[in-house]
Amino acid sequence: MRVTVTVNGTTETHDVETRMLLVHYLREVRGLTGTNIGCDTTSCGACTVLLDGESVKSCTLLAVQADGGEITTIEGMAAPDGTLHPIQQAFHEHHGLQCGFCTPGMVMAVASLLKEHPDPTEAEVREGLEGNLCRCTGYHNIVQAVLAAAHSGELVP
């Protein structure tokens, strides 16, 4: 089936198998391997991307469901000159990542969270990231990074 999807501002049309998951489309068809696959059950959040501005788990969408949609992946977060997005920068400055495998999904989940809760409390950050698992950081520094990003004044609402 033919699908037309805008990913990080670039629109392309491809023929895909109807059973192809969005995450496989992004990784294999669009060559954007920053989005990772960590589970089979919509549990870990490693595959989180933005669909029309909201966080979704791209392992639980068919590529055909995203037809006509606008996707942002981790590769679309930094500025074209490589300057990290304020959320990425906050993760860097607060050591909010170790192995980095959950990080792309985590950053995308945070982007959506901060859009919905621009001034979150620590509890709201923790609740808001309930769908993203990390095995390295114990979340402490991730939470610090999110709070710092929220209060950096650099996020466009």
């Binding site: 954007l32 920053g34 990772n36 981790i74 590769e75 990290l84 990425q88 990542l97 980095g100 950053v107």
Partner: peptide, 20 residues
């Protein structure tokens, strides 16, 4: 701050599954 971070944060890092 870690020198590993930029590649991991930008999605440029390559895990085995990412190799083409």
């Amino acid at each position: 701050l870690r020198r590993e971070d930029p590649a991991l944060l930008s999605g440029e890092a390559r895990f085995v599954h990412d190799l083409v």
